[in-house]
Design a protein around this nucleic acid. Structure first.
Lengths: 196, 196, 196, 196
DNA sequence: CAGTAATCGAGACGGTACGTCCCGTCTTTAT
DNA sequence: ATAAAGACGGGACGTACCGTCTCGATTACTG
């Protein structure tokens, strides 16, 4: 009749402050966008968030992990389903681009990607985070197949790359968000061949 | 009575050593690939190239410019023309990917791209360098149009993005070079719609 | 109708653990001797004594007071009276030196003295503690005067300094205990002039 | 006809700045006296001396060595020879005490002595420095023997201890300089037994 | 014998200094 | 004038403690 023994009991000691936690991550994301990974300093994160270096380093082993954790908090895309693959994808990609341009994500992502080229550990951390952000687009493609708009044999990952590759590349190289017509074209091109 | 003014007069004093120049850039590229922009230090470049910091800073104003200068030395693609757009593009992209994987370019490029997100000055420096490396691909598309393999209205830049976007993105996210079949698919997809 | 006011009423709540108290002070003295005041950490005292920082700071306001409290627990000299000033003093000083060499006192004392040079508060705390440890020597001198071995006008404090000064100084500078012959000489010299 | 090859040629590179060197040591000694070893910070030394932490740590491996180096710069006693051991010693000890009280030496010395109790390496560094400061007193004793004021068999080191022990001990325990009459007594007592 | 209250251990908190490393500049002698 | 060598001021890194605080759990006494 005892309640099922919880898998993880509350650990002893003073619990970590979630206010500090939030403040640190928010500040990190802001500074990351403002200055980039290299120019951002953990010292400034501590000062600006009203916490301390000790509190930061208790949670994350170094600047890189802190940055990834902050990056994870960037808002995700929500699913869009208006019954038409093309329209849905276009809307999603526009929103994604908007997100990149208007939140720290746009500047933080290239910074992290650059670091990850020499740091397999970081790659492992960052890829799932980025991948999760593309999930709603993947879903839209899946629904397109389910509805019969796209052929059954459609390679979902490839279509995803065909849409996101050009868009992200252009964003990263120019620093500016690709226009709506560019996005429309990218989506159209990517799905045209697979349309039933 | 003076000799006719030369277009470029030889400056007085000891001339700059071109051996040092080469050694510095080679070492920079190696270290950039080994460690990435952030972890690479100018001090180590000087030590490993057998030169000195003063010699480096006399030539380039800072670490960033040094890095870009080194990056510029990565070998370019040479044109490929076997009379078939698809084959040519496939060959070129395979060579490009091979270059990324086997030279420092593959690791240096994401590093620089990451820095450039917060540094417009770097963006201006790096974009033409990267763009030049895609020129042979652009040429192949142009020849395809000239030969009538692709329609006259083909948007060259867009086709370029459609091919390179997925390939580069995949390379940067995974760190591994995309397979030949992936490249074949990417090229096929990018040009299919424009084929006459 | 209240019960007669007790001199010290027992306070409510859980009483302080005297085991912890002892363990903390013992550990402090050990660590003080092992590492010195600066290198010793309250955190380690807590860990090694099986208590916690809160328990320590509830009893002593800071590291300095804790240290002094621990220092106070060093064993005192006991009086020696065999009827001969010279013999008594020699015995006492030998025991004192033995105490310095074999207990944490020898290493803790210089540490505290060093801190006290810049901390008048600590000086006030530490001087009586050290002074108390010299009391049996003072007593032996007093008895010498009472017995007529030393002249009536003997300046007790000065004789004390004349014996202890060289011995302690030598101990502190060398880190090793002065030999028995050195001590014999110091005692002889200090009292010779005052002998009746 | 070449000049004899110097044992140590001038090393390559920019020579270390002696201005910085001086400024660092002066500032260290000031801060050491003001705050003591523990409370003094290398960061503040750098700031106040107008130099940088790097410049300090290039010269000394850590705070302790820096402190000892600063300590070495305390002014030495100069010899005093007016033809009378007693008078000479009295003058010297008075000057020594004056030096302790009016320069950082008085507060720096206990601090270092305290640290050295747990640090044999520091002991080795500090003992010769302190010993050198007692050399003029040793000289005065030697001259007293030479002049026949003190007996030939006088143990110089012991007389030195008998004078300095009480004086230094009293200074360190009280923090105040011993009075002139105390010094006169200490000197008289120390040499009386050895007077010819 | 339940309620109250101060203790306990654990460990997080903001803060400060440590010693290290690198940046971009400067100063020296040698070519 | 350039080269190698290496010191310079500046500033961030990640670590270690200080003295304070906040938890849940314990241990007495009080009503």
């Amino acid at each position: 009749m005892n309640p099922p023994r919880a898998v993880a009991r509350k650990p002893p000691g003073r619990p970590r402050s979630s206010e500090s936690h939030q403040a640190i991550l928010d500040t990190t994301l802001d500074l990351l966008a403002e200055r980039g990974f290299t120019a951002m300093s953990v010292e400034e994160v501590a000062a600006r968030s009203g916490t301390s270096k000790a509190t930061i380093y208790r949670r994350w082993p170094n600047k890189l992990h802190l940055t990834v954790a902050a990056f994870e908090r960037t808002p995700p895309l929500s699913d869009v389903d208006r019954g038409n693959v093309g329209k849905d994808l276009e809307t999603l990609v526009n929103r994604f681009v908007e997100l990149m341009a208007s939140t720290p994500l746009g500047k933080a992502f290239p910074s992290l990607l650059g670091e990850s080229a020499h740091n397999p550990e970081l790659t492992k951390l960052i890829v799932p985070v980025f991948d999760a952000r593309r999930e709603p687009i993947r879903n839209a493609i899946r629904r397109g197949i389910a509805r019969g708009e796209l052929s059954t044999g459609t390679d979902i990952e490839f279509v995803l790359d065909a849409i996101m590759g050009p868009v992200v590349m252009r964003f990263m190289l120019s620093g500016a968000k690709p226009g709506k017509s560019y996005i429309r074209k990218a989506v159209a091109e990517a799905i045209r061949y697979h349309q039933a």
